[in-house]
Every structure is written in structure tokens, then in C-alpha cells.
């Protein structure tokens, strides 16, 4: 292969990847806007400004595309949160900053938030498994809180319940189309996340600090 054709081939690969990313972004936006069930491949193609041929070159069907889009979305959320959570901070500060970053992201991108938290539940068993895996990634960050009060013998699944508590409240707000107001709820959501680890008095103090 000559230098010119190698360059062309590389340019094509970039273009194909770019088209794929556009489709994935479009999938999340359309699902977030009109719901997974009501979303068709035609809707996604129109949103992405691409063709049916390009869509089916990249994905078997709507479901496969949504699963791939979900992975990319969750990676994006994590990258942003991890980027904001300096390892030098205390555990409580990292939780506060991580939660604030998540709420800001969801407020800025309400369609993505709804796809990630609400619509994923209606996209089948594999999608729900991915959602559970995503929550498990969050809970791994929370586990550091166990070391704050070793004498309290915190339950083994405390992180799942704490993340579940906050996730359930975020779910409520997104279903009620109040995603834009999520950042204003940081203090109360922070309390819900911290209280199983540090107890009510310390969590209330953190809630006041975050207000």
C-alpha cells in the first residue's frame, strides 16, 4: 500500500468512527427525549444526519446501538467525575465533588440523563445489567467511607443501598422533568449518600456546608 492510499484509509477510518459517534450521540438524545420504546432507527438516523446504510453498517439494530451508546455515555460520566475528584481530597470532599459533578452533568444534558437513568430500565435485561454495572462502578468509589467508622461495622452492601437511595431520588426528578434543578438538591442528596457512613449529625453538618 502506498503512502497516499494509507493516508486515505486512515482518513476513512476517522470518518467511519466519527459517523459512529454521531449515531451513538443521536441515539442517546432521541431516547432521552421521546423514550426507548417510541424511538425508531429512522428517528436516530434523522437526528444524526446520516443514512440507513451507515447505521446498519455500524449496528445490527436499535437495541445494539442503544447498548453501545449507553457504554459510551457512562464512560463519559465517569471520566468527568473522576477528573473532578482529586485523590488528595478527603473521602467526604470527593463524594461531595463527585455528586455535584454528576448533578451538573445531568442538568446540562437532560436528555442524556433521562436515557442513562430512566429509559435504560425499559430497554431490556442487557441494558438493565449495564445500568447495574454502572451503579457498581459508583459504589466502588463509596467503599472508602467504610474506613471512617470501622467500629460501626457497616453492612457489606451499604454502598449499593446508598447509591440506590441517591439514584432513586435522581430518577424521581428526571421522571418529573426537573433535571435542570438537580444541582440545587445537592445538599439533601449529599445527606442521603453520606448518612449511612458518617451518621445523621455529621451528615447534617455536611448538608449545611453544601447549601
Amino acid at each position: 500500500m502506498g503512502r497516499h492510499s494509507r493516508f486515505q484509509s486512515s482518513e476513512m477510518a476517522v470518518e467511519i468512527e466519527s459517523k459512529r459517534e454521531q449515531i451513538l450521540t443521536a441515539m442517546v438524545r432521541v431516547v432521552g427525549r421521546q423514550g426507548y420504546e417510541a424511538t425508531s432507527v429512522a428517528d436516530v438516523i434523522e437526528e444524526a444526519g446520516t443514512t440507513r446504510t451507515t447505521f446498519y453498517r455500524n449496528f445490527e439494530d436499535k437495541h445494539e446501538c442503544f447498548l453501545a451508546a449507553y457504554d459510551v455515555l457512562i464512560d463519559r460520566v465517569f471520566t468527568r467525575i473522576v477528573g473532578e475528584c482529586d485523590a488528595g481530597r478527603s473521602w467526604v470532599d470527593r463524594v461531595r465533588k463527585g455528586l455535584a459533578t454528576l448533578l451538573d452533568f445531568f442538568a446540562e444534558e437532560p436528555e442524556m440523563a433521562r436515557a442513562a437513568v430512566v429509559e435504560v430500565a425499559g430497554a431490556g435485561a442487557e441494558a438493565r445489567r449495564k445500568h447495574t454495572d454502572a451503579l457498581t462502578r459508583f459504589t466502588a468509589y463509596l467503599d472508602g467511607g467504610r474506613r471512617l467508622h470501622p467500629e460501626a461495622e457497616l453492612p457489606e452492601h451499604i454502598s449499593t443501598m446508598a447509591a440506590g437511595a441517591v439514584s432513586a431520588l435522581i430518577f424521581d426528578e428526571l421522571v418529573a422533568e426537573r433535571g435542570a434543578q438537580l444541582p440545587s438538591q445537592l445538599p439533601e442528596l449529599l445527606f442521603a449518600m453520606l448518612v449511612p457512613y458518617i451518621g445523621p449529625a455529621a451528615a447534617a453538618e455536611e448538608m449545611r456546608r453544601a447549601a
Partner: peptide, 8 residues
């Protein structure tokens, strides 16, 4: 939040 954690 507590109910949501248990239900989840």
C-alpha cells in the same frame, strides 16, 4: 431515599 435504596 431510604425506600429507594431498599427497593433498588
Amino acid at each position: 431515599s431510604l425506600a429507594g435504596g431498599l427497593i433498588m
